[in-house]
């Protein structure tokens, strides 16, 4: 569990390059409270694994983590965490300060990751989910620059409803996650997920109206909007190394036929293909409007009533990565 500590600003940088069948970090640096650990992979492929850790096993209000990653030509980098990223709310000692009085920009916990993926390189970002505790405020920005269409990335970003054992269900104050993916200088995806408690319905009616002609409805909490699911995941797949996975997921998806059901299923998922805009689209009428053709990537979203349901689904769906990173490394990611 967390050792209470002061908020800190930690930067880290990892530069990886391939040398024959080995992957070598030419730089691996980090600052408190961030820690990067790289175990040996014992593989005969240019793959490196790095764990992103934080002191005390979680992040506190005001923490700022900045990580910069460069995945060199032909190399593969797998970024993992050890257990879920726990986001705590700091309170003044012994007293429960009301959320509104301390929830300001300085109390926010932020993490940012900038990754550059060189031609024929692969980045696998497969962390455990983020768990925001009651009243916490978390903001994450991840930017991925795939230098060419030969660069690949598997990007998993997921979060849970909180400490379920303590009865927390979507009780955090704010969660914001931005994932932006660029391929060869073009932005192919910018996913901004914003989950804020009791957003809406708080405002008094416009000033011109002295007496509103209506009684506002009570606000709709995060739990109202996200039930019955307790875990949401977004998975981005880009580049040639992910093509097999995209094809098999798309086939499985197209085979689904949804009948009317009385209650939601324990797990649901969706996949949407993402293709790069062709600047020379003038000659092919439907290059932009049709989904077909060569897909450059896909976005997969999953929701489950239990985190384990989502984890199992991800493990099964990403199984083809075993051929890419090896069975042992894949198991490390989904232990």
């Amino acid at each position: 569990m967390l050792v209470p500590r002061q908020a800190a600003h930690g930067k880290g940088r990892a530069v990886l390059h391939a040398s024959g069948t080995e992957a070598i970090f030419s730089e691996l640096s980090y600052q408190y409270p961030l820690k990067l650990l790289s175990p040996d992979t014992h593989a005969d492929i240019p793959l490196a694994i790095a764990y992103i850790l934080s002191y005390g096993g979680g992040l506190v209000s005001g923490d700022r983590i900045e990580l910069d990653v460069d995945v060199g030509l032909h190399s593969m980098l797998m970024l993992l965490t050890q257990g879920s990223t726990k986001v705590f709310k700091t309170r003044s000692r012994g007293s429960h300060v009301s959320t509104s009085s301390i929830s300001n920009a300085s109390g926010k916990t932020t993490q940012s990751l900038t990754a550059r993926i060189r031609p024929n390189a692969l980045l696998l970002l497969l962390p455990d989910p983020v768990t925001c505790f009651e009243s916490s405020s978390y903001s994450q920005t991840q930017t991925f620059y795939l230098e060419s269409v030969s660069s690949s990335a598997v990007i998993l970003d997921w979060f849970t409803s909180g400490r379920m054992a303590r009865g927390e269900e979507w009780d955090f104050e704010r969660y914001r996650s931005v994932n932006e993916v660029w391929i060869a200088g073009r932005r192919i995806a910018r996913d901004v997920m914003l989950l804020e408690q009791s957003s809406g319905s708080r405002h008094s009616p416009t000033s011109q109206l002295d007496t509103p002609p209506y009684i506002p409805l009570p606000s709709r909490s995060l739990a109202d909007r996200l039930r019955p699911y307790a875990c949401y995941a977004t998975l981005f797949l880009f580049g040639p190394q992910t093509e097999k996975i995209i094809v098999s997921l798309s086939c499985a998806y197209d085979a689904l036929s949804q009948m009317q059901i009385a209650q939601p299923d324990p797990l649901i998922w969706s996949i949407s293909r993402l293709t790069l805009k062709e600047d020379s689209a003038k000659d092919s009428e439907d290059s932009l409007h049709e989904q077909g053709g060569r897909g450059n990537g896909a976005i997969v979203r999953v929701a489950g009533m239990l985190t384990e349901l989502v984890r199992n689904w991800l493990r099964a769906s990403l199984g083809e990565l075993e051929d890419v990173v090896g069975v042992d490394s894949f198991r490390t990611a989904f232990a």
Partner: peptide, 10 residues
């Protein structure tokens, strides 16, 4: 920003 991930999936 997207504020409703469930709506995205459905």
């Amino acid at each position: 920003a997207t504020t409703w991930p469930l709506g995205e999936i459905l």
